[in-house]
Lab assay of single mutants.
Amino acid sequence: MEVRTIKVFTTVDNINLHTQVVDMSMTYGQQFGPTYLDGADVTKIKPHNSHEGKTFYVLPNDDTLRVEAFEYYHTTDPSFLGRYMSALNHTKKWKYPQVNGLTSIKWADNNCYLATALLTLQQIELKFNPPALQDAYYRARAGEAANFCALILAYCNKTVGELGDVRETMSYLFQHANLDSCKRVLNVVCKTCGQQQTTLKGVEAVMYMGTLSYEQFKKGVQIPCTCGKQATKYLVQQESPFVMMSAPPAQYELKHGTFTCASEYTGNYQCGHYKHITSKETLYCIDGALLTKSSEYKGPITDVFYKENSYTTTIK
């Protein structure tokens, strides 16, 4: 009895394709271990004539594949690729409408935090270190965002349907971005203890939790000093293409032309909904596939993004 075979390709990165001759009487799992086709788990399936010449994702289970996976995804987590594939199996079914010149995501599976993050990423200057993220990001900007969303979920250790947080998501993504040249110098002034300067680099240099107003941050924000008295913390120097200011959701007025974009969060910790506000020729609110415009805006804002380049204080 002759062994019926077909020729397929296996890959971990969709760049390096490895030619395989597979036995049609055995499952993919018996031949390769966990195997995925377009995100779908085909591990328990036997090869079919229609699979001839198709590319299958496999887990990096030998040295060659491990090197290829690390170079593309910059992670050695053995569960990463499987999590990416199972997320992709959902995100490829989502709709990605162009809204006001940006790629958004039609609401499904509690994905409003991903839509808000995706919209924000198209408006701030950011370059990702893992080629996987950078490639998928370019495709997302062009309207094909399924891979990018699935990668975000995998890097953030999230599953489809789980509630997510924009600030946490951005923080994970910033860790995989090139923020080497970003720098922030802060000064804390206390009447009792004097003053202390701190220099922050990388992710810490672009994120701040405690106030939404970048102007206020430049002037000074009140913080408790270690001595128990009130101290003032203010920005001395900022070198970065953008800054992200966050605070627990509270009524906040966004003035046209003073910011790049913002995240609105309605609801409580267990259950809520994100919308995205962007400042173009007027203010726009993007909620999944829905767009509304207004000249002014007041609502429960939790993150505001500002364009920056270089700032030095005039406070002496």
Rank of each mutant, 00 (worst) to 15 (best):
E2S: 10
T5G: 12
I6H: 03
K7R: 13
V8L: 11
V8F: 04
T10A: 09
T10K: 11
T10E: 03
T11I: 15
V12Y: 05
V12A: 05
V12S: 04
V12G: 08
D13V: 11
D13K: 01
N14W: 10
N14A: 15
I15M: 12
I15D: 13
N16E: 06
H18Y: 14
T19E: 13
T19N: 09
Q20F: 10
V21E: 12
V22T: 12
M26T: 15
Y28V: 05
G29T: 01
G33P: 09
G33W: 05
G33D: 00
T35W: 13
T35A: 01
L37F: 12
D38W: 11
A40Y: 12
A40G: 12
A40K: 13
D41Q: 08
D41Y: 07
T43G: 13
K44H: 13
K46A: 11
K46I: 13
S50T: 14
H51K: 01
E52T: 11
E52C: 12
E52L: 09
G53H: 11
G53E: 13
K54P: 05
F56V: 11
F56A: 06
Y57V: 11
L59W: 15
N61C: 14
D63V: 07
D63W: 04
T64E: 14
L65H: 10
V67K: 10
E68Q: 10
A69M: 13
F70M: 15
E71D: 10
E71V: 08
Y72E: 10
Y72N: 10
Y72W: 08
Y73M: 00
Y73G: 05
H74T: 01
H74D: 05
D77N: 04
D77H: 06
P78E: 12
P78S: 11
S79L: 11
S79D: 13
F80Y: 11
L81M: 12
Y84A: 12
Y84D: 05
S86F: 10
A87K: 07
A87C: 12
L88R: 03
L88F: 05
L88K: 05
N89F: 12
H90A: 11
K92M: 11
K92F: 05
K93V: 05
K93Q: 12
K95F: 06
Y96N: 04
P97F: 07
Q98L: 10
Q98I: 15
V99P: 06
V99K: 14
V99D: 00
N100T: 10
N100I: 06
G101N: 01
S104Q: 11
W107D: 07
A108N: 04
N110E: 05
N110A: 07
N110M: 06
Y113P: 05
L114A: 07
A115G: 00
A115D: 02
A115L: 10
T116F: 08
T116S: 14
A117T: 09
L118N: 09
L118R: 04
L118M: 08
T120C: 12
Q122M: 04
Q123N: 03
Q123K: 06
Q123H: 10
I124V: 07
E125I: 00
K127R: 12
K127T: 11
F128P: 08
F128K: 06
N129Q: 15
N129V: 07
P131T: 05
A132G: 07
A132W: 00
L133V: 03
D135T: 07
D135L: 08
Y137Q: 02
Y137D: 01
Y137V: 02
Y137M: 15
R141S: 08
R141G: 08
G143N: 03
E144P: 03
E144N: 12
A146F: 03
C149A: 08
C149G: 07
A150V: 02
A150Y: 00
L151V: 01
L151T: 04
L153N: 07
Y155L: 07
Y155W: 02
C156S: 07
C156K: 00
N157W: 00
K158R: 07
T159Q: 15
T159F: 08
V160M: 03
G161N: 06
G161V: 00
E162Y: 00
E162D: 14
E162C: 00
L163F: 13
L163E: 10
L163Y: 15
G164T: 00
D165H: 07
E168K: 15
T169L: 07
T169M: 08
M170V: 06
M170K: 01
S171F: 15
S171G: 11
S171K: 14
Y172N: 13
L173T: 10
F174W: 01
Q175V: 05
H176V: 06
H176D: 02
H176L: 12
L179G: 00
L179R: 03
S181G: 14
K183A: 05
R184Y: 02
V185E: 10
V185W: 00
L186E: 15
L186N: 02
L186R: 08
K191Q: 10
K191M: 12
T192R: 12
T192C: 05
C193Y: 00
C193K: 03
Q195G: 06
Q196A: 08
Q197E: 15
T198Y: 14
T199W: 06
L200P: 00
G202A: 06
G202L: 06
V203N: 00
V203T: 09
V203F: 12
E204M: 11
E204T: 06
A205R: 01
A205S: 05
V206K: 00
T211L: 11
L212C: 10
E215Q: 06
Q216L: 08
Q216R: 06
K218Y: 04
K218D: 00
K218A: 01
K219R: 13
G220V: 03
G220Y: 03
G220I: 00
V221K: 02
Q222G: 05
P224R: 14
P224K: 14
C225V: 03
T226P: 13
C227R: 03
C227Y: 02
G228W: 03
K229A: 13
K229M: 08
Q230A: 11
A231H: 01
T232V: 12
T232G: 04
T232N: 03
K233G: 10
K233E: 10
K233F: 06
K233M: 15
Y234T: 11
V236G: 01
V236T: 03
V236C: 04
Q237A: 12
Q237C: 11
Q237W: 07
Q238M: 02
Q238R: 01
E239D: 08
E239W: 02
S240I: 01
P241S: 07
P241R: 08
F242S: 01
F242A: 08
S246G: 08
S246E: 05
S246Q: 07
A247I: 04
P248F: 15
P248A: 10
P249L: 04
P249S: 05
P249V: 15
A250K: 06
Q251T: 14
Y252I: 11
Y252E: 08
L254F: 08
K255C: 06
H256S: 04
H256V: 10
G257Y: 02
T258I: 08
F259T: 03
C261G: 08
A262D: 02
A262K: 03
A262S: 05
S263L: 08
E264V: 13
Y265F: 14
Y265H: 05
T266I: 10
T266V: 04
G267A: 15
G267D: 15
G267I: 13
N268V: 00
N268S: 14
Y269F: 15
Y269N: 15
Y269I: 15
Y269E: 15
Q270V: 15
Q270K: 10
Q270R: 08
Q270Y: 15
C271K: 14
K275L: 03
K275R: 14
H276Y: 06
H276P: 06
S279N: 02
S279M: 05
S279I: 00
K280R: 14
L283F: 04
Y284F: 08
Y284S: 06
I286N: 00
D287A: 02
D287I: 06
G288Y: 14
A289G: 09
A289I: 12
L291H: 12
L291G: 12
L291S: 15
K293W: 04
S294A: 14
S294H: 15
S294R: 10
S295G: 10
E296H: 14
E296D: 15
Y297N: 02
K298C: 15
K298E: 14
K298Q: 15
I301A: 00
I301K: 00
I301S: 00
I301H: 01
T302Q: 04
T302W: 00
T302F: 00
F305W: 04
Y306C: 02
K307E: 12
S310F: 15
S310M: 14
S310I: 14
T312L: 13
T313H: 14
T313Y: 15
T314P: 05
T314G: 15
T314H: 15
K316M: 15
